[in-house]
């Protein structure tokens, strides 16, 4: 799923889809996330798996009696956690994509449960960007676009924070110019 990447001209096949046309499918959105997202996700996984591992290791050092069991548990955590922390973020980086055209926000997430979301500009109600402490450390940001639907929010994680703030400004300007209450 990498070779098809790069920028797609957004008007390339606009309106070319009709009843009579051949089979169609959704193309991947044009943009990848910031590569630093991989490190961000990895850190999150390490923070999840690290503390139990450390606790188990320390306990194994201190308590001689249950040491084999504690070491076994630590090994299990490490064997489960390391591949997850190393490989899963790479995988995510490859499947998460996003694109903003003049008319819509379009994202794709997931592989086993792939999900494409599209929210048209004219229906966007709020544009938020969040930056948790880790995201700040890595210079990343998450942009959430909500519509009037309780289930229509579109989230783009792991953007470069400058790209994100440009995006927020652009989206806010576009949506403010659109009349109506967006329902």
């Amino acid at each position: 799923m990498s070779a098809t990447g790069g920028w797609h001209a957004q008007d390339g096949n606009d309106g070319g889809v009709g009843e009579s046309g051949g089979a169609v499918r959704l193309r991947p959105p044009g943009n990848e996330l910031d590569p630093r997202a991989v490190r961000w996700w990895r850190t999150q996984w390490l923070l999840l798996f690290g503390p139990p591992l450390i606790v188990l290791a320390v306990l194994a050092l201190v308590l001689p009696a249950p040491r084999p069991w504690l070491l076994l548990a630590a090994a299990v955590v490490a064997v489960l956690g390391l591949p997850v922390a190393l490989l899963l973020p790479l995988w995510w980086y490859r499947v998460h994509r996003w694109e903003v055209t003049s008319d819509a926000v379009f994202t794709r997430t997931g592989y086993f449960w792939q999900e494409w979301r599209v929210a048209p500009m004219s229906r966007i109600q709020t544009v938020d960007s969040q930056r948790g402490p880790l995201e700040q450390f890595f210079g990343l940001a998450t942009v959430t676009v909500t519509t009037a639907s309780a289930k229509g929010a579109v989230t783009i994680q792991g953007l470069d924070h400058e790209v994100a703030s440009d995006l927020v400004r652009q989206l806010t300007e576009t949506t403010q110019a659109t009349p109506g209450d967006a329902t």
């Binding site: 799923m1 051949g22 089979a23 169609v24 499918r25 959704l26 379009f106």
Partner: peptide
């Protein structure tokens, strides 16, 4: 389904559709 979605509410998924010749056995 995608053609139906585009027909029902034009210009939502439309710009993001691509034509394929072979059935979508597996994708990139």
């Amino acid at each position: 389904g995608l053609v139906f979605a585009e027909e029902a509410v034009p210009d939502l998924f439309g710009p993001f559709l691509e034509r394929i010749d072979a059935p979508p056995a597996h994708r990139s």
